[in-house]
Amino acid sequence: MADDKKDEDKPRQPSVAQDVGALLTGLKTTLSETFRPVVTTMYPEDKTPRSERYRGRHYLRRYENGLERCIGCELCAAACPVGCILVIAAENTDENRVSPGERYAKTYEINMLRCIFCGYCEEACPVQAIVLGPEYELSDTSREKFIYTKEKLLEPLPPDVQARLDSKDKT
């Protein structure tokens, strides 16, 4: 087709032999495909890896010492074209230090059902607190379950910090 455009563009009436040949070519093509391996990803047993930039479920990150990164600046909420992020900031105090800066997010909620995963919040965040991770299996059965609260969004504490806290609880 690419080479002899002039010839192909003229609608010639092909002979019966050519027609039959074309039909057989089609059959040959499909038959040869039949004996090649399947291209299917056997989800859920088998998952293709997501790219590094994949925009999936959101996470609120922590520093290595367990403090939250989020400083409650609300830039993510402002950048969101959907308006599905709700941030209410509060002041850090010395007794209750949640993040290293002055303020932290008292409430941090994302309405995942409205979210369009555009990644603007991640771009907007000055401290890289909100990131979009590789998880994508988020389906659920009721609307309420899609309002991700801060507890759901926060990364788990680093193991050493968690261990420290656990030991504190016991005592």
């Binding site: 087709m1 092909p14 050519q18 027609d19 074309a22 089609g26 040959k28 093509t29 499909t30």
Partner: peptide, 14 residues
Amino acid sequence: DEYEALLTMNPIFR
């Protein structure tokens, strides 16, 4: 090429 093999000259498609 494969798509064309299935359609371009196929008398039914034509």
